[in-house]
């Protein structure tokens, strides 16, 4: 038997680096997290801070020159009736889109988490992700064709002799309109469609973590299907649903393309920001508008936490 040395020979740089990281485990960690920390700290948080600071500047109404003194004047302007309307409209739309997404996404996510196996699971992921691979603009214009007065939906309704349903929907006060593509209903449908994957995926992930035995335990102890849903499945799915709602809610609040292509001429926060920083050149007010979604999200998360939405994490 050949004797081997207790320490194996050094094979070069790789071995020496491994030895260094073995002696100083924190060194590797630091090398790994420094670049993303710089990215997050400087570029991401930095631009966020710049935005915040901008919102505390003001604009001279006559000359259009930005006054770099810290003031709350811009925020005063933000709460004028016309601007407040925009905020409330956006908030209502985001809420409607989020609630609808949750209701529509739940059965899909539940099916995927509990019943889809093997190939069906792949089909599910493909089906959910596929819309995300195509251009957002193309999808929105495609929806315009579907929802337009001369579009597929109207055609189908005519063929099915169901135009009265469509007319009834469009006759609804405030959310209705001349056609689906020029109404809030249309905006809402397209928002729900576009953000749906962001609700389904986290919801499915959280439902997947609920073991079957927990549902069986609930039934075993006497719960009906409805009681199991309310007292076990929904509370355990809540972190996923909140994660999904953060996406649907904040993406709807910041979007300016969908309401521009599909919907009424009434503006949403995203459109207001777009116009204020562009044509109007009112960067401070644009910044103040941009702060609104951030504040609303923070309030929303605080309320969710208080309601125990993260207890199952």
């Amino acid at each position: 038997m050949t004797t081997r040395t207790a320490i194996m020979p050094d094979r070069g740089l790789g071995d020496r680096l491994s030895a260094l990281f073995w002696r100083r485990p924190k060194l590797l960690l630091m090398l790994l997290i420094t670049p993303p920390l710089i990215w997050l700290g400087v570029i991401y948080l930095g631009s966020l801070a710049a935005l915040l600071v901008q919102s505390f500047f003001s604009i001279d109404e006559f000359s259009g020159v930005i006054n770099y003194e810290l003031t709350l004047k811009t925020y005063g302007e933000l709460f004028r009736a016309a601007n407040l309307d925009i905020i409330i409209r956006t908030l209502l739309m985001s809420t409607a889109v989020t609630l609808t997404s949750a209701v529509v996404a739940f059965p899909i996510a539940y099916f995927a988490a509990r019943f889809a196996r093997g190939r069906w699971k792949a089909v599910f992921y493909l089906g959910i992700m596929l819309p995300l691979w195509s251009s957002y603009l193309v999808k929105v214009y495609a929806w315009k064709l579907i929802l337009a007065k001369e579009g597929i939906l109207t055609w189908a309704a005519t063929k099915l002799h169901a135009t009265f349903v469509m007319d009834a929907v469009l006759a609804l006060p405030w959310v209705g309109g001349n056609s689906l593509s020029t109404s809030f209903i249309g905006t809402w449908i397209v928002f729900v469609y576009v953000w749906m994957p962001y609700m389904i995926l986290p919801l499915q992930a959280s439902l997947e973590r609920v073991p079957t035995s927990m549902l069986e335990a609930s039934a075993d102890l006497g719960a009906t299907r409805g009681q199991t849903l309310r007292t076990v499945i929904l509370p355990l799915a809540m972190p996923g649903m909140i994660a999904g709602s953060i996406f649907t809610f904040s993406l709807t609040m910041g979007d300016y393309i969908i309401p521009q292509i599909i919907g009424t001429s009434a503006r949403f926060i995203g459109q207001a920001v777009y116009q204020l920083q562009g044509t109007a050149g009112n960067i401070p007010l644009a910044a103040a508008f941009a702060v609104v979604p951030i504040v609303i999200m923070l309030i929303y998360l605080a309320l969710a936490k208080r309601a125990g939405a993260f207890d199952a994490l």
Partner: peptide, 13 residues
């Protein structure tokens, strides 16, 4: 009839 499950299946929330 009630069951004590193998993984106990206690409700974590």
């Amino acid at each position: 009839v009630n069951t004590v499950f193998q993984d106990y299946a206690l409700f974590p929330h």
